[in-house]
Design a protein around this nucleic acid. Structure first.
Length: 300
DNA sequence: AGGTTGACCTGGACGC
DNA sequence: TGCGTCCAGGTCAACC
């Protein structure tokens, strides 16, 4: 579900509520799909760690973890859930020297959400992870389609996928990404190895604002068109972040609130409706297996 | 090598 | 009401 603006909205909510908090225990569901790292490694990295910061990298949420050993009084604390899991025997070996450098990386996939909840509140269906915090709150990962992924990264340099952060890229950097690419510009915008964070909604919205048809080959765009596209991508993403993201079906932020940018969509999800600029009917076509929406009049 | 397609999952909307 | 079909904000592996 979430693209960069939705992930950023979630990140901001999380940062406000959990930064500085300490993870007391972790529960992981039975189905293994959402786990990209072994369950014992995730549990070992998270339990007793302090959340030093919550960052966003593309569509990923990254929790910076640091050791809380010295400041935590562990007297009388309950048995962590990990001990109830069959695989807990492995936990020890993940408690290494690198503790304090770990990152907990969450990708929400299509339908994932990360919500702050009170322990007594009902546990939603498709909840795959519950992180209990010292403050008494819980951080819950819910994902019906199970396309989301949880992992722990301990490498020096941390989690670093390829791709440019679209809000940081300058126009020349941006233009360079598409040089020599024969793929449709729509597909190139979705390629996370080039630009990280743009998904189907914001690719379509950006192309409309830039006046470029989604099927145009990336390599054939003129310098002027690339400059317009660069501006459009940044504008759309910034506006969407201000609106709290787009709630197309069930997206909510960490506080459970929807976003409002769906009311500003000019083409996405508007097949057959009138273009807000020229009145022509918005078209929907399929490009590389993804639906693409555009105005045949405004986009060339 | 680089681009395109299907598979991965579940649930909601729609047509009959 | 119930069943079948199609569609979905993302990413991979497997193909050409």
């Amino acid at each position: 579900m979430p693209e960069l603006p939705e992930v950023e909205s979630i990140r901001r909510g999380l940062a406000r509520r959990v930064r500085g908090d300490v993870i007391e225990s972790v529960w992981l569901g039975e189905k293994p799909e959402p786990l990209k790292s072994p369950a014992p490694e995730i549990v070992a990295a998270l339990e007793q760690a302090r959340i030093a910061a919550v960052r966003r990298v593309g569509k990923h949420i990254v929790f910076e973890l640091e050791s809380s050993q010295r400041s935590t009084s562990s007297q009388g604390k309950q048995v962590p859930d990990s001990q109830r899991r069959a695989r807990n025997d492995d936990s020890q070996k993940w408690n290494g020297d690198s503790q304090g450098q770990a990152q907990w990386v969450v990708h929400l996939g299509m339908t994932g959400s990360l919500v702050i909840a009170q322990p007594e509140s009902e546990i939603a269906r498709h909840t795959h992870a519950i992180v209990r915090l010292q403050s008494g709150r819980e951080l819950r990962f819910v994902d019906p389609r199970r396309f989301g992924r949880l992992s722990v990264v301990r490498e020096r340099g941390g989690f670093a996928p390829g791709g440019q952060e679209p809000l940081n890229a300058g126009v020349r950097q941006f233009a360079r990404l598409f040089r020599g690419r024969k793929t449709p510009i729509k597909s190139a915008l979705l390629n996370q190895k080039l630009l990280r964070g743009v998904g189907n909604i914001y690719a379509d919205e950006s192309l409309h604002r830039a006046g470029i048809r989604p099927r145009r080959r990336a390599s054939r765009l003129t310098a002027e068109e690339l400059a317009r596209l660069h501006r459009a991508v940044q504008q759309v993403l910034r506006q969407a972040i201000r609106a709290g993201g787009s709630s197309v079906s069930d997206y909510v932020n960490a506080e459970g609130e929807p976003g409002f940018f769906q009311f500003e969509h000019r083409v996405y999800g508007r097949e057959g409706e009138a273009c807000r600029k020229c009145g022509s009917a918005i078209r929907r076509v399929v490009i590389a297996g993804r639906s693409a929406h555009y105005c045949p009049e405004c986009q060339k």
